[in-house]
């Protein structure tokens, strides 16, 4: 018995050494190596694809953000993102996790549809699915081209722009499927809104 205990203790000590060595290799050297390569080769992406405007960081093309007025409602002058279960807080990413059969979710979706149709002066049938559903990350940077299209006239009116110009802007910022067949076509809201602001300049 004593020998068995002593053997197991000796084994445990050897194992702890093994764990520390392997932690050094996979927990320190590996991430440092990858960080080194990443920072040397792709510094902009490795640091989160941060967009600067007049020298100031204003967001990331990969992380959605709110486009609200000071009182917290959606601002008519900007393209609006999808609903978010995390209010676009990158330190609290996540989804609603409500079931596709959930009565609560159905009510939320009906209410959003009504509000978005009224906000953009379009019929309810024109509101696409992504406009009334919360994303998985709560940080979705994109909207569907259909959701961008129903917002153009409202944005143009609020800014006193020619709707045709705004529609052309949306077309220019519509990204097709990756490699032609992967994922869905999208519009990055931050990129679109920054370009929109530059229309005035």
């Amino acid at each position: 018995m004593n020998t068995a205990v002593r053997n197991t203790a000796r084994l445990a000590a050897a194992v702890l050494r093994a764990l520390l060595v392997l932690t050094l290799v996979t927990g320190v050297l590996y991430p440092l190596l990858v960080t080194g390569i990443a920072q040397a080769a792709f510094p902009h992406k490795a640091d989160g694809s941060v967009v600067r405007s007049d020298g100031q960081a204003v967001g990331s093309t990969l992380i959605g953000q709110t486009w609200n007025t000071r009182d917290g409602g959606p601002d008519r002058r900007w393209f609006q993102p999808r609903p978010s279960a995390s209010a676009y807080d990158p330190l609290a990413s996540g989804a609603s996790n409500l079931a596709a059969t959930s009565p609560k979710l159905t009510r939320q979706i009906e209410a959003r549809k009504k509000r978005i149709a009224a906000f953009n002066h379009v019929p309810r049938s024109a509101v696409p699915p992504d406009a009334v559903t919360a994303s998985a990350s709560g940080l979705d940077p994109d909207i569907s081209p259909a959701y961008a299209r129903i917002q153009t006239d409202r944005v143009a009116r609020a800014r006193g722009l020619d709707p045709a110009d705004v529609r052309a802007l949306v077309r220019r910022h519509t990204q097709g499927r990756e490699a032609g067949f992967l994922g869905e076509p999208v519009v990055d809201v931050l990129e679109l809104n920054l370009a929109l602001r530059d229309l005035h300049r």
């Binding site: 992406k45 967001g59 809104n193």
Partner: peptide
């Protein structure tokens, strides 16, 4: 990383959006 995933040793970076909101990018 080449496709856009993050890789650094930074703390969350505070930014101010165009509309004046604050966001912390991890």
């Amino acid at each position: 990383v080449a496709a856009g995933a993050v890789q650094n040793v930074a703390s969350p970076q505070e930014i101010t959006t165009v509309t004046g909101a604050t966001q912390h990018l991890p």
